[in-house]
């Protein structure tokens, strides 16, 4: 049975549908794809009571997202955005009660992706995921004017949380921690962000002697590859699974979200760390996320904020 219309998209900037992605199909050449900023996505999913990594979210990278509800439900926005429901300014990082007929606008304004989740939204999956792989074209969809989200609204979801302190202990986006491969002298130089995309973030730096004809090797999200033209590319979730450039290091898992927050023109540095430190950073991040999910449970009777 096809679910009824939950909301209609009136306007959308750079927006796609994402979830946790397709992590188990790498052996067939399928990139993981999925939410670029994992912790924001997971927060947004948890706030509307959704099973994180399986539920759909709109990933807004720039511009506005405007929609009109057709059913009463709960909705959450996580990330740097100005949120208005029927003209009234409301907070991010909290589940909002919305009624049928209400207009919601989300204006992107800050570093990195903004996630919008809607309780009850049902999105078809391709190869186990509704993520939009912008590079290979597999699954998902670009969200635009006139599109609809289908589902059965669920206004019982209300949750909120204060942004956990541990989430801010990571270094700023201008310093990214890496496990270096081989000599780490490339880490010490300054790089400027030249272009950002879900498939990879390009950094400009001094031209270096690197081999241009290496055999293709398997690679991984977060790998930093040096090109003969003097660029470094940090592979993103839609990036390829094999690469023919020299891999000089790989970002630690705890800093992967920071890549999605990089803006063109900013300067960054890499800081080499060891695997033990990388693992501690990841654990710290995980316990912060755990607290958040506990607080975003189904609270039923609580009135809608605002």
């Amino acid at each position: 049975m096809t679910p009824p219309v939950l909301c209609v998209i009136d306007e959308a900037g750079l927006a796609t549908v994402q979830d946790g992605g397709r992590p188990s199909l790498a052996g067939l050449g399928v990139p993981r794809s999925g939410a670029w900023h994992r912790s924001r996505y997971r927060t947004a999913a948890a706030l509307v009571g959704a099973d994180h990594d399986q539920s759909a979210a709109v990933e807004l990278l720039a511009g506005r997202l405007a929609l009109t509800l057709r059913q009463a439900t709960a909705l959450a926005v996580v990330g740097p955005a100005d949120v208005r429901v029927h003209g009234e300014e409301l907070p991010t990082d909290t589940a909002l009660h919305v009624s049928a007929g209400q207009h919601v606008t989300v204006v992107h304004g800050g570093a990195g992706p903004v996630y919008v989740t809607v309780a009850g939204w049902q999105e078809p999956r391709t190869l186990g995921s509704c993520s939009t792989d912008t590079f290979s074209g597999i699954g998902g969809r670009v969200i635009g004017h006139g599109d609809v989200l289908l589902g059965w609204g669920d206004s019982g979801q209300v949750g909120s949380f204060a942004r956990p302190a541990a989430a801010t202990t990571s270094p700023s986006a201008s310093t990214l921690r890496v496990i270096a491969s081989g000599d780490a002298d490339w880490c010490t130089q300054e790089w400027a962000v030249a272009a950002t995309a879900r498939s990879g973030t390009r950094l400009a730096g001094p031209v270096r002697e690197v081999s241009s004809a290496l055999p293709s090797r398997p690679t991984i999200v977060g790998a930093v590859q040096l090109t003969p033209a003097g660029e470094a590319i940090i592979l993103g979730p839609d990036g390829g699974l094999t690469g023919g450039y020299a891999t000089c290091g790989v970002l630690i898992t705890a800093d992967l979200d920071l890549v999605s927050e990089l803006a063109v023109g900013v300067s960054i540095r890499f800081v080499p760390v060891d695997v033990a430190e990388a693992s501690r950073a990841f654990e710290a991040q995980g316990s912060a996320e755990g607290r958040l999910v506990v607080r975003a449970g189904r609270l039923g009777q609580e009135p809608a904020p605002g």
Binding site: P23, A26, G27, S216, F282
Partner: peptide, 16 residues
């Protein structure tokens, strides 16, 4: 998760 390369194997864990 194990992936093959031409002259290598990539062995991947879900978390650090």
């Amino acid at each position: 998760l194990i992936r093959r390369g031409l002259r290598e194997l990539l062995v991947e864990s879900e978390t650090p």
